[in-house]
């Protein structure tokens, strides 16, 4: 990986981040509801209100507020939540691991399923499995994760109640986690009853998040494989007498991977964005669920912090996808 490319790519993210910070700030300073009015007890004196406004910096002119906010942001200080009266950064960090574990599980699921479906459709091209894959991909792309989540609640939570539809872990399991990465920690500790409970709770939200990405990967991989299978080197491999499965895996797959990564890249950020609602539907204690509570409670610093966190995540994911693309494609690597 050429360092120059990485540096250039990182530099490009800076104006975007600055733009995000401006939008994030402007968006929430024009909010009509007065956050101070909501947090004071009835009968608070004017002096109390003024002190609170000063504490949150709301008595300063807008440009000064923006500058202070930006300065604090650069120091990693996201302010104090109005509702929860705790530091925003700490709150975000306590909830982010749950979201990351869920999103990562969904991504792994989507990549594995998407590859299996795409390759399967080509292996059995022209026969019924291909039609099944086309159908799954069509539905997966048309129906957004929000609706998949609701459908899964109905199907596997209520009509056929085999999986839990809310929370992160069975509350009856008494245990103490040292880190907020419950799944990684229980795996490391080898406590598989905990792992089982965590995975059971993550199963439905992860599938709901994964389905649209699965569909996109399956469809793009399939058409890329069709393209790759018509190339001369495939004919060569066939002449050499290699089997169909072998040809697909060793020859075509590698070449189909580049367009698949490029074209499905955006969908990874959509998956992460989708956690906001999916966590809400499944009462999963991640950062997205907290974001909606913050919006309903008009907790300005917390909303700003969460929005900023998501923006940074999005920019990081895009960076990772670019890196993957460069690693897979030697022509770009040296370009």
């Amino acid at each position: 990986m050429p360092l120059a490319y990485l540096v250039r790519r990182l530099a490009m993210a800076i104006p975007t981040l600055f733009g995000v910070a401006i939008v994030d700030f402007v968006l929430l300073r024009v909010v009509p509801g007065n956050p101070i009015a909501m947090m004071i007890p009835p009968g608070a004196s004017a002096a109390d209100i003024a002190r609170l406004r000063a504490f949150y910096g709301l008595d300063q002119p807008i440009p000064v507020q923006f500058w202070r906010w930006l300065e604090a942001l650069l120091h990693g200080n996201l302010g104090v939540s109005i509702d929860l009266r705790r530091g925003v950064l700490g709150l975000v960090m306590s909830r982010l691991p749950a979201t990351l574990e869920l999103a990562l599980l969904a991504m792994v699921l989507a990549v594995a399923l998407g590859i299996a479906l795409g390759v399967g459709a080509i292996y059995w091209q022209g026969r019924w499995p291909e039609a099944v894959v086309d159908g799954i991909a069509g539905l997966g792309m048309a129906i957004p994760d929000f609706l998949w989540g609701l459908l899964l609640v109905l199907l596997l939570g209520v009509l056929l109640p085999i999986l839990p539809i809310s929370g992160r872990i069975d509350p009856m399991l008494s245990t103490h986690f040292v880190t907020p990465f419950y799944l990684a920690e229980s795996l490391a500790r080898g406590e598989f009853s905990l792992v089982g409970s965590l995975l059971a709770h993550m199963a439905l939200p992860a599938v709901a998040l994964a389905l649209p990405l699965t569909a996109v990967i399956a469809r793009i991989l399939k058409s890329a494989l069709v393209e790759a299978m018509s190339q001369d080197y495939i004919l060569m491999a066939r002449v050499k007498g290699l089997g169909r499965a072998r040809i697909i895996w060793t020859e075509a797959f590698r070449n189909a991977l580049v367009p698949t990564v490029t074209l499905s890249g955006v969908q990874f950020t959509f998956l992460v964005g989708g956690t906001v609602l999916i966590e809400r539907i499944f009462s999963y204690p991640g950062i997205g669920n907290m974001a909606i509570d913050a919006v309903i409670g008009r907790d300005l610093p917390l909303i700003q912090g969460v929005v900023m966190t998501f923006a940074v995540l999005f920019i990081l994911i895009n960076l990772l996808i670019d890196m993957t693309y460069v690693l897979l494609n030697p022509r770009v690597r040296h370009g």
């Binding site: 975007t16 981040l17 733009g19 995000v20 939008v23 968006l27 929430l28 024009v30 909010v31 009509p32 929000f146 950020t269 992460v272 964005g273 989708g274 906001v276 609602l277 997205g288 974001a291 909606i292 919006v295 309903i296 008009r298 909303i303 969460v306 929005v307 998501f310 923006a311 999005f314 920019i315």
Partner: peptide, 16 residues
């Protein structure tokens, strides 16, 4: 714009 999760952005906007 693309750096914001669309759903979160619309939720925040409606609140605003």
């Amino acid at each position: 714009w693309m750096a914001f999760p669309p759903v979160l952005l619309s939720i925040v906007l409606v609140a605003v």
